[in-house]
Design a protein around this nucleic acid. Structure first.
Lengths: 167, 167
DNA sequence: CTGTATCCTTAAAGATACTG
DNA sequence: CAGTATCTTTAAGGATACAG
């Protein structure tokens, strides 16, 4: 077979995680879920992912307990929210090495307005802040010119709290 | 085209990172580099990756400045070492949700023997420990039965310091 | 031991149209 | 708006052989 679903080395938790979220598109779907996207069509337009592929990915994430599917909405479960440190670590690395103008997005501790570092530690209170208490806004490196023009993307770049559905 | 090299949304540092390390096998190659593998043949046998694919991946990682290729050895650059938080976050998520017997591997602060959490924070001194000061050993959830039998894998499971070449 | 080079096969991406 | 259904194309897995 060409693309077996399993990496040879299952005795490693990295390989195991990659079997769940290592496929193409998957982490971008999870990211959008953190940013407030919940509906099939919104994922599709925001990501530009083929709808058939999106169907497969969403179904798999629901099956694995990363997303919950109720009333046509896909919402992160506690297990899915547990992926936040992964997202942040990847974003921080990308910002550091591929975004000379500064971070693409700024995350803040809603309670005190402190900036969060790559490990979600607040610059004001020093605590690690869970995603439910985090707000997102465009960062200094965000480039409006290369952003998508659709309404969904526009909602995404409006400052708001993580995990809350888009208005 | 089926698998273009670029995600639509480049205005996101996560998407940008995934363009570099989001391809199949790539993060496992980086993991093995952290664990001390440096030679083409060792990557190939440890991962069971087709040699042609390995060639492509290594070349790309060198081109992107994640690996340095000198004297037939592939070694992580500072930029590559910067991926450690990503690796750890993914391992921690996998351990939590897919390794009921406990963590597959234990990471310790070599200086004081403290255990490191998913953010590489030491349980003894409380500091975030860089990979060069970290030792790796099999964790409680490590299953020797499902481990590879080859000498390379055996070296990997022997307690040792990260980034040091295998003996 | 480090790669390249074939050749075959298949999963899955992309594009587009369509159904409930 | 949610999701299927086709159809074409391609990356990459698997096997194997070979060159420096």
């Amino acid at each position: 077979m060409a693309l077996p679903s399993t990496y040879a080395d299952r005795n490693c938790s990295l390989a195991r995680s990659l079997e769940i979220v290592g496929e193409r598109w998957t982490l971008l779907i999870v990211r959008d879920a953190f940013f407030g996207i919940r509906r099939f069509g919104d994922f599709a337009t925001q990501l530009g992912i083929p709808r058939a592929v999106l169907t497969t990915r969403l179904r798999f994430l629901v099956q694995e307990g990363v997303l919950d599917h109720t009333d046509g909405e896909y919402v992160l479960t506690a297990k899915g929210i547990g992926l936040w440190p992964v997202m942040r670590a990847m974003m921080a690395w990308g910002d550091e090495h591929y975004s000379p103008g500064g971070d693409k997005r700024t995350f803040r501790h809603e309670a005190d307005g402190g900036r969060l570092d790559g490990a979600s530690r607040c610059s004001v209170c020093g605590e690690v802040v869970p995603p439910a208490d985090v707000t997102i806004e465009p960062g200094p490196g965000y480039d409006p010119d290369t952003a998508n023009a659709d309404p969904v993307s526009a909602s995404l770049t409006t400052p708001h709290r993580l995990l809350e559905p888009l208005s």
